[in-house]
């Protein structure tokens, strides 16, 4: 489904590599959580999958396509197959919940249809369906600024699902939410993943969430893959590998138990 072959990413502003010779295969239907300290390359990793970040060296394949060789039009088509949710939700202010969800369809429509808001009955029903899925149908006509953080992320998820993607990416989707809301969001993501065999790749800070919900965990440190395994293979040593000795291992040790 997704394969990284010797991928490196260097930002022009920095000397160090954000990703360094990373190779990994992700199969269809996996639910992957990516762990790592801030600056470990988690965001860069996720963002190379939908080409928000181009790679410097190596190749990434998504659904059998080499991302290196895509024209702008093909890139846009690929992005319609990859949904993404963000830490700060990135919703469009002043639009309603439902209008925001419908923007998920933008990549699949003509410019004038988007400009004039010409959506088919089918698309509007689909928006309602996903709003129901994320529990926000009663809020469909409310402006997004008036929602809580958790609700905003649900709108973000509905917008991504509106693309009817085969892959769902999450760039720290719960980092600005409280623990209970974070758990609810992960439960929702698991449900969507199970219903549709959606390949899901999510960055997360909270090890406990990763352990409870992921089918596979990747650990990044300084742009390198230092762990790739099942949640039950996470040991204190693995934590040290991912987070380094500078962080108190006891805190994490207590989290794995």
């Amino acid at each position: 489904m997704i394969s990284f072959d010797n991928v490196s990413v260097t930002y022009t502003s920095e000397k160090e590599m954000a990703l360094s010779q990373l190779s990994v295969e992700i199969s269809e239907g996996e639910f992957i959580c990516v762990l790592g300290k801030s600056g470990a390359g988690k965001s860069t990793f996720i963002r190379t999958i939908n080409l928000l970040q181009p790679v410097t060296k190596g190749t990434v394949h998504v659904s059998g396509e080499n991302l290196d060789r895509l024209s702008e039009k093909e890139t846009r088509r690929l992005r319609t197959e990859v949904g993404m949710i963000f830490q700060h939700f990135n919703l469009i202010p002043r639009l309603s919940v439902k209008q925001n969800v419908l923007t998920g369809r933008f990549g699949q429509k003509k410019a004038f249809e988007n400009l004039l808001g010409l959506f088919t009955k089918q698309e509007r029903d689909l928006a309602d369906y996903y709003l129901e899925e994320v529990g926000l149908l009663p809020f469909a006509n409310r402006r997004v600024e008036h929602l809580s953080g958790g609700q905003k992320q649900r709108v973000g998820i509905a917008r991504a699902m509106m693309q009817e993607p085969s892959i769902l990416l999450g760039d720290e989707p719960v980092a600005s939410l409280d623990p209970t809301t974070s758990k609810n969001i992960f439960q929702l993501l698991t449900r969507l993943h199970e219903q549709r065999q959606l390949t899901t790749v999510i960055n997360v800070h909270d090890v406990e969430l990763a352990k409870n919900f992921a089918t596979r965990i990747l650990g990044l440190k300084d742009g390198k893959l230092v762990f790739d395994g099942k949640p039950n293979q996470l040991t204190t040593k693995v934590y040290d590998d991912i987070y380094g000795h500078d962080i108190k291992s006891e805190t994490f040790a207590s989290q794995i138990k």
């Binding site: 992005r79 700060h88 990549g107 973000g156």
Partner: peptide, 14 residues
Amino acid sequence: GPQEAMKSVGSSRR
């Protein structure tokens, strides 16, 4: 942020 989100749904630049 919203511009990035629009990019990620495959919308055209404009």
